[in-house]
Amino acid sequence: MTFDPDKARKELEGIEREIDALGNNSSDRATEERIEQLSEQVRQLRADLATHPSAWYRVQLARHPQRPHTLDYVQHLFQDFTEIHGDRGFGDDPALVAGLARFHGQPVVVVGHQKGHDTQQKLRRNFGMPKPEGYRKALRVMKLGAKFHRPIISFVDTPGAYPGIDSEERGQAEAIARNLREMARLPAPIVVLITGEGGSGGALAIAVGDRILMLENAVYSVISPEGCASITWRDSAKAEQAAEALKITAYDLQSLGIIDQVIAEPLGGAHADPPKMAQLLDPILEKSLYELQQMPVPELLERRYQKFRLMGQCFRDGTG
């Protein structure tokens, strides 16, 4: 039987109401035992909820409109954020933000997808789907950081790179490809935080780094569950099944060796308490940066190369 987080949540609420009701009444021995029993159930349900939400439920959390986005993390984690605009070629893409900031006093470079919380913001940010100029801006600012030996922190949260006529005309594929190649050799530490949706190539284009950290309700996939379902089952309603099959949760990806660390979220998800989320993130980010900055650049680059070189050794030699 699969765990249903929605049902568990309702059940949890029900039990908590029951406990409240019992607590208000008499305090005889039978009632106390009943409360004890119910409290045990509550602990169990909370533990289940924290560890076992279905992949599809996590997709919903990752897409939650109130989930903190790059600029929310910037506000909570950094000081003196100074946004840098434009790709110096075509324009400025609001779906991808970049800038300079201080993290515990240390100057860093920040790049990240930006989605928006309400309709107006979402439209302005194109739902966090960058066009080529967005990726080119990100690379330009990361190169600027590397030139001055500033570590780079990248926040990944996008449904994907924008699929449109203008994107294709201006070379969406080329922009992504170039980022992959250049990030592999940028001479500065890169920490990648997958905070929401890791939507395929559009996510990967700013997700090549030395540490790949992922929030526990974030997802990272080669295709959206809906897209997968409509291709394989010819039915996008099978998205729930597809989400499971694609192994897109942080824990799945950790066991596949694709990400380094899963970061716990506040109960209920990051949107339930964004300042708390940032608080949980802060020491992990600080530690990662510290470790990476101890490494000489040639070693850093060699390790980064080997990290990706060894991803997905899922083959055998069938000639033997």
Partner: peptide
């Protein structure tokens, strides 16, 4: 494009190949 049936593993092949192309370039 990337092979859906190998999920994020296939996505990572993009990074892997591009990283080795950086070395060929150098």
């Amino acid at each position: 494009g990337a092979r859906m049936m190998e999920g994020t593993v296939s996505l990572m092949q993009m990074a892997k190949i591009s990283a080795s192309l950086a070395r060929l370039d150098e």
